[in-house]
Design a protein around this nucleic acid. Sequence first.
DNA 1: CACAAAAGG
Length: 704
Amino acid sequence: MSKRKSEMADKDQKKKLKETTTTTTTTNTDDESTKTTTNTTLTAEEWIPKKEKYSERYYQILEKRKDLPVWKQKEEFIEKIKSTQVLILVGETGSGKTTQIPQFVCDAGLVKPGTMVGVTQPRRVAATSVAKRVSEEMDYELGQEVGYSIRFEELSSPKTFMKYLTDGMLLRESMNDPLLSKYSVIILDEAHERTLSTDILFGLIKDVIKKRKDLKLIVMSATLESGKFQKYFDNAPLIKVPGRLHKVEIFYTPEPERDYLDAAIRTVINIHEDEDDGDILVFLTGEEEIEDTCAKIQRECRNRNLKPMKTLPLYSSLPIFQQSKIFDTYKERKCIVSTNIAETSLTIDGIVYVVDPGFSKQKTYNPRSRVESLLVAPISKASSNQRAGRAGRTRPGKCFRLYTEAAFKKLEPQTHPEILRSNLSAIILQLLRLGVVDLVHFDFMDPPVPETLMRALEVLHYLGALDDEGNITKVGEIMSEFPLDPQLSKMLIASPEHNCSNEMLTIAAMLSVPNVFVRPKDSREDADAAKKAFDHFDGDHLTLLNVYHAFKQEKEDQTWCYDNFLNHRSIKQADSVRSQLARIMTKFKLPLLSGDINSRAYYNSIKKCLVAGFFMQVAKCEKKNQYFTLGDEQSVIFHPSTGLSRKPEWVIYNEFVLTNQQYIRTLTEVKFEWLVEACPDYFNQGGFPKKSKDAIDRSKRLMR
DNA sequence: CACAAAAGG
């Protein structure tokens, strides 16, 4: 343990350096109404002012900007956007569309005084970093004329006329401002990624532009789906912008590979032996696979007496200081072994060779069993090309596909959009709150199967967010304000009645961040022992509460987290989420209460309150280790990560996990009486949920 | 007795 501590000191330093340079968090207030939405006293020129004198840097950057491919089409773009309400713009990587198009929109005089051009991004880092870049290009101070808005962080001012924001944030904004009246122009960037939020925005904005003829929409994406976008937006005109990538030579295997890991290692070694200098990027599916492969590549290099090579793992749960190592320069050749994170979220310059086995982990949702699961599946053509493109950012490169050309041709053209692979209960609640009653006729670009919608409505109905006619209730309206799954928001709304809102806030926050428990491969036993110290007799939800309390007691100390095998980043994130949730509670006059921790009722109230949200996720003990879930009668066992050492008759679970076995994870013991009390409508006399056929009939009624 | 990809609010 002492070795871990000393190692940490250095890492701590690095990390702190990073953090001080990147976090300038201002708290998002929920009503950001400081901005006057219409300002008729200004002219368009005054609203987007030209400076009398620009800095030298401005002119330097301007010269570089003019080299971007998109600049050749500036006039064409301005002419087209002036003559149409919707425009589709396709541009490959390196075209400059994300930074330049919003500026062209301003130059065209399309941003009315007092309004903004809003540009959505699927990721927070993109929204903030592009906003920063563009503010420099325009010679403004970030947060004044050019700003951004992401969860927990809004940087804008009354002067802001250009705002970069996450697609989820624009969706949130639309709940208070369904006509998006703050914007004259909306740009949906990276539309080909088809995130859940972007897909919903498609449908909403398609409707808004009918009501607001003064609003312009630009959909920007990579090439493949442009025809589909055009068609969806009533044959909107299209502009194509070439990208600026170096040529990437593609190689296929002549025969299918039996073991893609083995093949990947072999390919890396071959590149290292035979090819010129240049870094390698290998795409694998998950953390464990990546760590294993890194070790194997190292071993192979030593065994064969090859020149040393720096192998670097990359995945999202990797601590930031380790992630940032991929950007360092080394004497040796770099070999980065990464998940999909390097496909879209992170760009690494200097990659010359890409090794692509053709798989990734993908979420699937089965509405029949209501189970979301992660499965290793073949990637799409679009993904495959995106991966190959990673080899050509700085100079011509090579991509080794570990599958045959025939197999490539058979790949799906696109990854299924997220909306077809997700549980939609939270997003459906948002739509209902927005007044979209007729879900069946909502203009989805790719409509989810009706059963997914029915499942969502069913859950919302049992939780009391919808009445029997399918109208949103008062409770449902409040639930929709929380950035949480409906089960969690229901639990929070119920918490003042149980006198435990503070505790439930903590539990809800801890459940909505990545796992706080760390279990490194080489010290699993120590990690398990450390976790035991936090275990609560009644179950894992209460263990999470213990962890949070200890974290606060230890003054959020990083070293303490490290020594106790806790993910500091995760708990910090939970802490931010918790404050955000607390603000929403206060906004709706839900009091923040705590019971007496020494009273006997204390933990029972918390458990009763958990049931108020999770009565549909209950398992009953059948024999010894065998449990079955109420509702769909699945045979399940406790996930080994549970700290619940007893086998109580009834438990609620946070997740159903389908891997080699059917597990339930994050468990807490409850009493049967509480279940019926929480939702008499859901359980019949015998203590069983009403037959699912009834439930389906009811959902059908709700859907019409 | 074993696992979580990525991202968003």
